[in-house]
Amino acid sequence: MSGLLERIAGKLRSYREPGYYTKLDHKWTMVIDLDKCNGCEACVVACYAENNLPVVGREECEKSRAFSWLRIERYVEGEYPDVKVKFIPVMCQHCMKAPCETGCPVYATYHNQDGLNVQVYNRCVGTFTCATYCTYDVRRFNWFTYKWPKPLEAQLNPDVSVREMGVMEKCTFCIQRIRSAKDTAKDESRPVKDGDIKPACSQSCPTGAIYFGDIQDPESVVAKLAKSPRRYRLLEELNADPSVIYLKRVMGDGTSSHE
């Protein structure tokens, strides 16, 4: 009897835990080395291809409705000819304390056991709260029903659903790849290895600036890179605890980019 009560009390106590999970299965983390990024946007193209993102055309882009889940922000410093251009790829930061998650009234966005900030497309009713609360402006909205011109609909990724009009979406860290990697690992009765999973952006980056892995695994590449002195996170002062770690670019004159 007392054992049962203790179990119930333990359960109740666990509901008061911030973040709820006592231990995450994984904590997927992306490390982006800005020293290696040359702003080629191969990652953006890969993301379009992998995640069935529609190409909206020039007019819509001018209205700031471009669909890229991942964007390369360009900041130009100085006057010609003494110009410095800085790039920073920004995608969903998968915040551990994400403001968007508390905003959604219908649980369309939430945090899962892998430390991912997940968007469930077909639960979304489109209240825009998540996108408004997002401090990184990474959420994208399906303003229209987008159609793919005739032969292109055949290249859609079957592992990713094509989103309906009126639905919010965002970078998922290529969750379909994570899922299939975990599936394979399960079939082979082994844990997921470091390097099993490569999101489309990471896979396509010609300079290898984007690393992906489980930061809970101390042997993983990202865990090691995360200890780098060049490490910083975007808008860290807002206390959203993002899962994307940037490594500062060290300029020729010794100054560093951003911050």
């Binding site: 109740l12 509901y15 008061r16 835990e17 911030p18 973040g19 709820y20 999970y21 915040c95 551990m96 304390k97 994400a98 403001p99 968007c100 998650e101 508390t102 959604c104 649980y107 966005t109 939430y110 945090h111 605890d241």
Partner: peptide
């Protein structure tokens, strides 16, 4: 239906 969100407690 336990769905954690925003790093807040369920309760």
């Amino acid at each position: 239906y336990v769905i954690p969100r925003g790093g807040r407690p369920i309760w």
